[in-house]
Design a protein around this nucleic acid. Structure first.
Lengths: 340, 340
DNA sequence: TCGTAACAATGAAACGATTCAAAGATTCGC
DNA sequence: GCGAATCTTTGAATCGTTTCATTGTTACGA
């Protein structure tokens, strides 16, 4: 119980050499049937479990990949994590997950921890700017792929989603269903995602001469912030109201939906169409099922692992930036208005 | 770049013995100021990072704790994980997180992986029954604490939340605010949590002679399932309606809320009070802010780590089962009706 | 100046798995 | 029955740390 059995114990118990036990574990074909059975029995009887530390020490590297995300609670990352785990499992690696919680200190701790663990490489959705900490990783030769953040291809590979394209998709969809007086609701445009989604929306609006896009800045990106914006809107003259609203995320959209439907005078989608972004679980079960833009999180996670594998294998890695295009999910909240 | 610097490289570079470098890292007081500086400079110049595998091999155990949860996406577990990480950090350990996704196969993989890693111990929220896999861990002497699941104290320590008490709290609150015709909405009572919460509610109702409790079984525990139940309710005669509804989780409650408020004839909380369970983020930002029962997730995570530490230290561990009582969070959805 | 105590530095041994050259056993054709 | 070829098994060396008994150094009081 105290000290767990080692390969040497197994060897003694089965009366073979340690090398043979190792062969049974790693190259079973090299070992005769009889011996194999004896060894396996011994392993079973002693409850032997390989010591990964020793294995790894000898091998010089681990079979794990470090993954540091900004917030495991965020469904976007949860989904990326799951995809990355599955993709890693396929190539025989395990993922060590770290949650930085947007905190640079925690991020640094995980980077250090993972380096000490000699992970094969690192997937990271970095806090703030791509910092010196990451440059240090590069110098140390730790293969690294940035997730949900574009990077200079001289320095890192990266996977990201094209937020401009997502914004375009959303606005184009509102225009395609006949809306012309659009509004964009988002937090500060100092958040890159918000700025990009807005930019894409503006691009779409420019394609329709008579279409307009009003920008409403919310205080944060929560349901409550959305409700505040909605409350301001319902005060307006009917004529001054937008007929299509694009929110920078689903939480905002759900908040706006609450305000608009609470008054019982405005109908979604007949009077105002509403589309969000992220396609969270709640979108489908909103009072009026919410149209949204879905990000290809599975592809992100899988591709991140694949890019990392490239980095690990290549001697002189040529970094790549892979950008995914999000997808429009149409639900009732943007159904075409019944009359022309 | 190829092979990272070892303690031996550092020793050469600083012209000291390897033991001295080790002392600088682990017992800085044993080393003279001059030497320490030379060594630290060498570490810096070579970009030396401790190899944890070697450390661990020598030590015989790692400084990590394995944590396997049923679903990292579930806010309950996310919160437990975070608390466990913080508590572990305090005692100098790191947490390796595994997400079984309710899948026994994935759970088994993580158990194996963590055993190979020689984790100090394991926190696990097990899939299905406490199985032979866990018994095996016990035989192997891997300290294990069950999370969110009571266990035989002969076998394991455990931390859990008292769902019966939670159910009692919720129903008692409805009764205290004057409601007498209560309804319970939940999925199948074959789910332990559902059964316990119902039982607690029944206990509270029995305390009031004229109070009644009707049980409505939903198909699943989602917003949509809640909406279905709500839709059935609004069809009823006003007189046959409950005046207080307790849902086995917040998703169900939000769904019920959607149905009731959509009709515009029933008001929450004036006509019907509504309370959920879990206190998810969405509860506070619902159309009518939702009262709920909050589970002490931080305490769960922290205590789990503490119990594990006890197991690790004690030679002949006496297992303990710690049960937490949840907490009532009152919001608008159960405000006392304006008139008596 | 010497002996002793306190302090610093040394380096071999150990942790447990994998590797691989070498030795030993078996099979086969003739 | 013999040599060659093939298949098995062996065990020492190795990975990078930590530990610890030992040796070397310094300081100080008598």
């Amino acid at each position: 119980m105290n000290r767990s059995a080692s390969i040497k114990d197994v060897a003694n118990h089965a009366s073979v050499a340690v090398g043979t036990v190792s062969n049974v574990l790693n190259y079973p074909d090299r070992v005769s049937q009889r011996t194999k059975e004896r060894v396996l029995r011994a392993i079973d009887e002693l409850g032997f479990v390989r010591n990964d530390a020793a294995r790894q020490l000898r091998a010089g590297h681990s079979r794990t990949i470090g993954l540091i995300v900004l917030d495991v609670g965020n469904p976007f990352f949860t989904s990326v994590v799951r995809a990355a785990e599955d993709a890693a499992a396929l190539q025989g690696s395990a993922v060590l997950l770290g949650d930085s919680g947007h905190d640079a200190g925690r991020e640094a701790n995980y980077i250090d921890l993972f380096q000490e663990q000699r992970v094969q490489g690192l997937l990271i959705s970095p806090v703030g700017d791509v910092s010196e900490r990451l440059d240090l990783l590069r110098e140390r030769g730790v293969p690294t792929v940035l997730v949900d953040r574009l990077a200079d291809e001289d320095k890192f590979s990266s996977v990201a989603v094209d937020d401009d394209a997502g914004g375009y998709l959303a606005a184009r969809h509102l225009l395609d269903t006949g809306r012309r007086r659009l509004a964009f609701v988002g937090g500060s445009t100092s958040i890159r995602q918000v700025a990009d989604r807005l930019q894409g929306a503006q691009r779409a609006v420019k394609e329709e001469p008579e279409a307009t896009l009003e920008v409403l800045v919310s205080e944060g990106q929560t349901v409550l912030a959305g409700r505040s914006v909605g409350n301001i809107l319902v005060e307006r003259d009917r004529a001054a109201l937008p007929d299509g609203i694009f929110c920078a995320n689903d939480l905002l959209a759900l908040g706006v939906m609450q305000s608009l439907t609470m008054t019982h005078t405005l109908r979604i989608p007949e009077d105002i169409a509403l589309i969000g972004y992220d396609d969270i679980d709640f979108a489908v079960s909103a009072v009026v099922p919410l149209s949204s833009i879905r990000q290809p999180t599975e592809a992100l996670g899988r591709t991140a692992i694949e890019l990392l594998a490239e980095e690990v294998e290549a001697q002189h890695p040529r970094h790549r930036a892979v950008i995914f295009t999000p997808e429009l999910v149409v639900r009732q909240s943007t159904a075409a208005p019944s009359a022309g």
